[in-house]
């Protein structure tokens, strides 16, 4: 009893004359709130971990869509198109409002030769985009096609007004991509940065997009190969 008295007396000073020896709940909550704010401020500096994961899973999805499109083309005996739609980014920053390829959709054809959507268009999660720079996405070279009125309204927004680039998978398992000896077909996924306004991009360590996934497609066989940093 007597030994605790001086400690309480010492503690009483900074804690506005209270007689208790510890911290109150309010004090602890305040400290925790301050720590939380500091962590949330520091998180972007620590790394792009969740962003990289998002990127990888979107590339996975497109890879499966390619396998699916090829499968349907071979089994149905009719070409199947995989489209990448141009949409403006909605996040804030100097590059906001610029259009990027950030949604994909499988289109199948009926007897009339017109392509209709097969299921919903898939918008890429978060800031994932496909670079339009032909150095990193040779498939995106040249003017986009569309808009196509048959790309009906979907849950993810109206694609009928959007321009797009496409790959067509043919019934013999091949694609409509050029087959010359030096032609090489690929797409590169990155996480959009507010400073990027389109045009020439830089990919690699310490440049604009250190995180990326590249999918390469063999025009003859429809085989997809994947490249990403560190692998």
């Amino acid at each position: 009893m007597s030994s605790s008295s001086p400690r309480r007396a010492a503690a009483a000073g900074p804690f506005r004359g209270r007689t208790g020896g510890g911290f109150t709940l309010v004090e602890i909550l305040t400290v925790l709130a301050v720590i939380a704010i500091m962590i949330s401020l520091a998180a972007p500096l620590i790394g792009d971990y969740p962003e990289g994961r998002e990127l990888a899973s979107e590339a996975d999805n497109v890879e499966s869509q390619m396998a699916y499109a090829r499968l349907i083309a071979v089994s149905s005996g009719a070409p199947v198109e995989l489209r990448f739609y141009l949409e403006p980014v909605t996040e804030t920053g100097p590059g906001a409002g610029t259009e990027f390829f950030r949604a994909s959709q499988v289109m199948v054809t009926r007897d009339d030769g017109v392509f209709y959507p097969d299921g919903r268009a898939q918008r890429f999660a978060g800031k994932t985009i496909i670079l339009g720079d032909p150095d990193f996405s040779s498939i995106m070279e040249g003017e986009p096609e569309g808009p196509d009125p048959n790309a009906r309204r979907t849950k993810n927004g109206a694609m009928s007004g959007k321009q797009y680039k496409s790959i067509r998978f043919l019934p013999d398992g091949s694609t409509n991509l050029g087959r010359g000896g030096d032609e090489n077909w690929f797409l590169t996924f990155v996480a959009w940065k507010p400073t990027y306004t389109g045009g020439e991009a830089a990919v690699g360590p310490g440049t604009t997009f250190p995180n990326f996934v590249t999918l390469q497609i063999d025009p003859f066989t429809g085989k997809v190969r994947r490249y990403e940093p560190g692998r």
Binding site: R18, T19, G20, G22, F23, L25
Partner: peptide, 14 residues
């Protein structure tokens, strides 16, 4: 040990 007045958590408890 407390005498009447409210008391917070001690450092050890924290």
């Amino acid at each position: 040990a407390t005498r009447g007045a409210p008391r917070g958590f001690t450092l050890t408890e924290m």
